[in-house]
């Protein structure tokens, strides 16, 4: 029994010892662990400011920022698809900031900032597309899919995987893209036909391309840079940019309102928009288009000149009301339809 009491006492002491050290800036990061870690380390190295990083998906980070709004713990929210950033801006969870680097950014990044009344800014851009598994395709001796329209061909029955737009920003981007490309009625006609070919609506947006890489499905809908990232780990994946044109995401960054380290947070913000931060991205297998105009597009990245980008209306399709309406319609008419 004496041992148990000792353990108890030791536990109490250990708890007291577990005091957190204060950091100069707390970064909520919604990219892959490797990228997040690398970025923060580089920031500390170049500026001497101690940064701390917590990694979660963009949906999780949004939920966290929202839950913490009465007493925020984070200072900057870096990366992750633009929609939750826009929604946070709409709800006033993030701070307005005009970075001195804004004029050095590419158009789409500044537009993202204007849309949110400068409560967020674009840090990278990536086009939507899909990836197919070369080996699986060869095994079935099928022609490679090149367009959105190819995905509803009968030979791909049960071979296409996409995420559920109710839970994934990637899949919601696809839904909004098709609506803007063809008009709402035609888009939903297409999605109903596609529903027959879908083998699974995954919960997470990155799951379909992972599954395609493993051969668990032939085709997975994803952002093209994610397809490239998985392909470079040695998986037989081919990136496709749909011939009809496609939408894109603007990976964003926001200052969290009421953060405890506003000065250093702004330093991180400016630094993350600068050349040195944005040019190391390919080193961490991140192949998006950087927002700083002086940084070249990585050579592994999907060739932008061959991608037909639509003029994606983030203001309309990023708004909570329109999103709720489209998702409700998709859930009843497409997901709820018999297969």
């Amino acid at each position: 029994m004496r041992h148990a009491a000792t353990l108890l006492a030791a536990a109490v002491l250990l708890t007291a010892a577990a005091l957190p050290a204060r950091a100069d800036v707390v970064v909520y990061c919604s990219a892959d662990e490797k990228i997040c870690r690398g970025l923060v380390t580089l920031f500390t190295k170049e500026t001497g400011i101690k940064a701390e990083m917590t990694r979660q998906s963009s949906g999780e980070t949004y939920a966290r920022v929202r839950a913490e709004k009465e007493n925020p713990r984070g200072d900057v929210w870096w990366a992750g698809t633009g929609d939750p950033h826009l929604q946070a801006a709409e709800e006033g969870l993030t701070e307005e900031y005009h970075s001195p680097l804004l004029p050095k950014l590419r158009d789409w990044a500044v537009k993202q900032a204007e849309r949110a009344k400068f409560r967020t800014v674009g840090v990278y851009m990536g086009a939507l597309g899909f990836g197919y598994n070369r080996e699986e395709l060869a095994r079935r001796k099928l022609a490679a899919p090149k367009c959105w329209a190819d995905l509803i061909k009968p030979e791909f029955k049960g071979e296409v995987q996409m995420a559920d737009p109710n839970s994934s920003g990637t899949a919601y981007t696809m839904l909004a893209t098709l609506v803007q490309l063809w008009g709402e009625e035609k888009a939903f006609d297409y999605l109903k036909k596609l529903n027959v070919n879908i083998n699974e609506y995954t919960k997470s947006g990155s799951a379909p391309v992972m599954a395609a890489g493993q051969g668990e499905t032939m085709i997975g809908v994803a952002f093209q840079h994610d397809v490239v990232m998985v392909a470079l780990t040695g998986k037989p994946l081919v990136t496709v940019s749909p011939c009809e044109g496609t939408g894109y995401e603007v990976g964003s960054m926001s200052l969290i309102k009421g953060g405890r380290n506003p000065v250093d947070a702004r330093k991180f913000y400016d630094w993350a928009l600068g050349v040195s931060a944005q040019s190391i991205m390919p080193k961490f297998a991140s192949y998006q288009v950087p927002s700083n105009a002086a940084v070249p597009v990585p050579k592994e990245a999907p060739d932008l000149s061959t991608i037909k980008l639509i003029d994606y209306d983030f203001a309309k399709y990023g708004s909570a009301a329109e999103r709720r309406r489209l998702l409700a319609r998709w859930t009843t008419e497409v997901k709820g339809a018999p297969r």
């Binding site: 949906g59 559920d164 109710n166 839970s167 994934s168 899949a171 919960k203 998702l327």
Partner: peptide, 22 residues
């Protein structure tokens, strides 16, 4: 789970998913 939805995962994605519906 695939397309087979159960409560525990639905709860998670109601909070963190694109719908954000606590």
């Amino acid at each position: 789970g695939g397309s087979f939805n159960v409560l525990s995962t639905d709860i998670f994605f109601a909070v963190v998913g694109a719908a954000h519906d606590q």
